[in-house]
Design a binder for these strands. Structure first.
Length: 264
DNA sequence: AACCAGTCCAACCGCAAAGAC
DNA sequence: CGTCTTTGCGGTTGGACTGGT
């Protein structure tokens, strides 16, 4: 038994939206808010599937959208965020008010990729194109990144529902240097990861040196989980209000400064 | 003017996560 | 706790547009 289709395809329009459809969708959402997308088309009198309505609203009709060209600052911010987050367009979009994930994705593929290539930078790895260590090392790194990132996400989901977007960040288990630092030298981060600890077999210990302090954090604290029972560094209570004015909301360490100070 | 190749971007598709029951 | 439904995300596509010949 397969998945049921998201909508009754036989009686739905496809392709470009007409002005009338846009007006109907806008009017309905203004009156009722963004509710159940599945039932919205019928309620609004639209022959579209809910997915299509949602996409149209989010990417084109939302009143808070910023139309027009990307600024140089936005360009650079997208590059930095992409180097940290990878193709997590929705997270990147979350840091650029008025921009949508689809817009940023398109912009990345059409403009920024080329821009980076012209600079001699591989857009997918953010490393120099002629970096001979790229291919072999990246394969291993990619694997590590995926497993580690999923670990990060898992930890985050169970402990901090509101700040997923702030914490789900790509890290690299590179014992020689902090890769995140290398990719974004001006982010004022020093991220290194220690070799496996003698007593620690299952979890990577992250040593995260904040801007001025050079203080070491355990894995849990590095994720903003300093109240967690998994905290092993005993740094509880010394982080918040620490460096670079990165304020933290109730109980949340501003991981890598993503929340406020660096990434706007 | 006609054709073609390249570019751009709105919209679609499939999948996975989240939520409801 | 398992199953089903809904939502959201990222990759991809197709058509409109543009510039060159």
């Amino acid at each position: 038994m397969g998945r049921s289709p998201c909508c009754e395809k036989a009686h739905t329009n496809k392709g470009a939206w007409t002005k009338e459809e846009d007006d109907r969708l806008i009017a309905y959402i203004r009156a009722h808010g963004e509710g159940c997308w599945r039932s919205l088309p019928k309620a609004a009198g639209l022959l579209r599937c809910g997915k299509s309505c949602r996409l149209r609203w989010i990417n084109y009709l939302r009143p808070d959208l910023k139309r027009g060209n990307f600024t140089e600052e936005e360009d650079e911010l997208i590059i930095k965020l992409h180097s940290l987050l990878g193709n997590k367009w929705s997270l990147i979009a979350g840091r650029l008010p008025g921009r949508t994930d689809n817009e940023i994705k398109n912009y990345w593929n059409t403009h920024i990729r080329r821009k980076l290539l012209n600079r001699g930078i591989d857009p997918s790895t953010h490393r120099p194109l002629n970096d001979s260590t790229n291919s072999a090392q990246n394969n291993q790194e990619a694997t590590t990144t995926i497993s580690f990132a999923s670990h990060v996400k898992q930890e985050t989901d169970t402990n901090n529902n509101d700040n997923k977007a702030n914490v789900f960040v790509e890290l690299h288990r590179d014992s020689k240097r902090g890769v995140a630092r290398e990719r974004c030298p001006d982010l004022n981060l020093e991220l290194t990861i220690s070799p496996p600890h003698q007593n620690q077999e299952t979890e990577d210990q992250v040593i995260l040196k904040t801007g001025g302090g050079g203080r070491s954090l355990c894995f849990a604290c590095s994720l903003g989980l300093q109240n967690s029972k998994d905290c092993s560094c005993g740094i509880v209570g010394t982080i918040n209000g620490g460096t670079s004015g990165s304020g933290s909301s109730a109980g949340g360490y501003d991981f890598l400064g993503l929340k406020s100070s660096v990434l706007v």
